[in-house]
Simulated scan of single mutants.
Amino acid sequence: MATLFLSSYTASFAQQIKIVDKPIVFDSTRVRLSLEYLKNRHDIVKSTPTIEPKIIVLHWTAAKTFSSTFNAFNTAKLPDGDRKDIATVSSLNTSSQFLIDRDGTIYRLMPENYFARHVIGLNYCAIGVENVGSRDFPLTPEQLAANEALVRYLTAKYPIEYLIGHYEYTRFKNTPLWKETNPNYQTGKDDPGKDFMEKVREDLKDLNLKGAPQQKNN
């Protein structure tokens, strides 16, 4: 289980953020597939599908509604024929710990320290925050405020070191945090957009969170 750093500050801040619990299915099938993913993809053997959070990864859904994203996550296995780019390595469905709607409502889809498949190489230590939107359906000011509030809440509760956008995840390759057993397995990402990440980082600079490692020029 992840260690919780509870304090008077954490308790106080928790009262300032509203999180709606709307759990997706986390049944015996998702538990089994999560444990298999941890073993086969991250080379980590565990008896429970939990993580020790060190990274927060911000995403966008590429879908226009909360319900379509929730329904997509709400099965343990990827639907047949869906996401062929990732289905070849595991039938575990994608998901995230949090999903933020267009109006800034924060939904918690599972316990914060449960395993979710949302970022290659880093799932075992990363909390995912999905936002309803896309490049053509830009994230809203309400979502920006909600992401910032959620990051503050999570960093007060867990020993979070990094805050990244999904598009930055491959920069952890060749670092101790990267745990993907197939060095050629990756997908191209651009979420949640560089402009959004710049705004988040500017407003949260007091937290002194690290970004993704800088890429080295060959």
Rank of each mutant, 00 (worst) to 15 (best):
Y124F: 14
Y124W: 14
Y124L: 12
Y124D: 12
C125V: 15
C125Y: 00
C125M: 14
C125L: 13
A126H: 04
A126D: 06
A126Y: 03
I127C: 07
G128N: 10
V129P: 03
V129C: 15
V129M: 15
V129W: 07
E130Q: 13
N131R: 05
N131M: 14
N131Q: 14
N131A: 11
V132K: 10
V132C: 10
V132Q: 12
V132G: 04
S134L: 06
S134P: 06
R135M: 10
R135K: 15
D136H: 08
D136A: 12
F137W: 09
F137E: 13
P138Y: 08
L139V: 01
L139F: 07
T140M: 12
P141L: 11
P141M: 10
E142A: 15
E142V: 00
E142H: 12
E142W: 07
E142S: 14
Q143Y: 08
Q143S: 09
L144N: 04
L144Y: 04
L144V: 03
L144C: 03
A145E: 15
A145D: 15
A145K: 15
A146V: 00
N147L: 08
N147W: 02
E148R: 11
E148K: 14
E148D: 09
A149R: 11
V151E: 05
V151Y: 04
R152F: 04
R152Q: 13
R152K: 15
R152L: 06
Y153L: 15
Y153E: 03
Y153P: 00
Y153R: 12
Y153Q: 10
L154V: 01
L154W: 09
L154N: 04
T155M: 01
A156R: 06
K157Y: 07
Y158D: 05
Y158F: 15
Y158I: 02
Y158W: 06
P159I: 02
P159F: 05
I160C: 07
I160Y: 04
E161N: 05
Y162A: 03
L163F: 10
L163I: 07
I164V: 13
G165A: 13
G165S: 08
G165D: 09
H166V: 01
H166C: 12
H166M: 10
H166Q: 12
Y167M: 11
Y167A: 12
Y167I: 01
E168R: 08
Y169R: 04
Y169Q: 08
Y169C: 07
